[in-house]
Computed example of a mutant assay.
Amino acid sequence: MSRPQCPRCSRPTSHCLCPLIPALDSRTRVLILQHPSEVKHALNTARLAALGLINAELVVGEVFTDLAVLLEQPGHQACLLFPGELAQPLSEYAAAREGAPLLLVVPDGTWRKASKLLHLNPALAALPRVTLPQGASSRYRLRKAPMAGALSTIEAIVQALEIIEAPAGFADLLRPFEVLIEGQIAAMGEETFRRNHGSAS
């Protein structure tokens, strides 16, 4: 028999994260396009990000037939947070817009699944691409990063917003994420965590 879940954060009611989820506002509009394979993942960081940001929307799918509508945000310049040869540093892209609000589009999934979203949605792949500074360190200790500097979706969004909207801070968005990580580590046991994921520092 499955445990009752919180309908908002999708966690078991005994481990509900809602009291930790903030309600942060931003000039930047955040659109998260989530691959369906991520929906039931125990560490659904995209959902936490969407719940904690007032000006954010989470859409699940592979082919987004209404993408043109989703991207139509009056006064906002849409850009895609995804690496690539033509990707600009986000700080430079935002500075060139001279403070105009951005629509930050963030694909959520493994690198393979996120790349598939771009392949299946040409209008998405055609957006200007932006990247975060290299050298970031992820706190997502339960999933092996595909490459150095890879971040979870919620970490990438926080870093992006702090670049675009400096000096505003968005670290509170990470509080439920960190509690979730610690809870998962506690559930598996310290010894198992160290054996499978390295040091528990």
Rank of each mutant, 00 (worst) to 15 (best):
S26E: 04
R27W: 13
T28Q: 03
T28D: 08
R29Y: 13
R29D: 11
R29W: 11
V30T: 06
V30R: 02
L31Y: 07
I32T: 00
Q34S: 05
Q34R: 04
H35A: 06
H35C: 04
P36N: 09
P36D: 06
E38T: 08
E38L: 09
V39M: 12
V39G: 10
K40V: 12
K40H: 14
K40Q: 14
H41V: 11
A42K: 14
L43Q: 15
L43C: 13
N44Q: 05
N44M: 05
A46G: 13
R47W: 09
R47P: 09
L48C: 08
A49F: 08
A49K: 08
A50K: 10
A50W: 03
A50T: 01
L51V: 05
L51T: 09
L51R: 03
G52W: 02
L53C: 04
N55K: 03
A56G: 07
A56F: 06
E57I: 01
E57K: 12
E57N: 11
L58R: 12
L58D: 08
V59T: 12
V59S: 09
V60F: 04
V60K: 09
G61I: 04
E62Q: 13
E62W: 04
V63K: 14
F64E: 01
F64R: 00
F64H: 02
F64C: 00
D66K: 11
D66H: 13
L67R: 08
A68M: 12
A68K: 15
V69Y: 13
V69D: 14
L70C: 05
L71N: 01
L71F: 06
L71W: 02
L71Y: 05
Q73T: 10
Q73E: 11
P74A: 04
G75S: 06
G75H: 02
H76F: 03
H76N: 09
Q77S: 14
A78V: 00
C79L: 04
C79P: 02
L80T: 01
L81R: 02
L81A: 05
F82M: 08
F82G: 05
G84S: 08
E85I: 07
L86M: 15
L86I: 13
A87L: 02
Q88K: 15
P89F: 01
P89D: 04
S91I: 13
S91E: 15
E92W: 09
A94T: 06
A96E: 11
R97C: 13
E98M: 14
E98N: 14
A100D: 10
P101H: 01
L102C: 10
L102R: 10
L102I: 04
L104S: 00
L104I: 02
V105P: 01
P107D: 00
P107T: 07
P107Y: 01
D108K: 09
G109R: 03
T110V: 00
T110C: 00
W111S: 00
W111L: 01
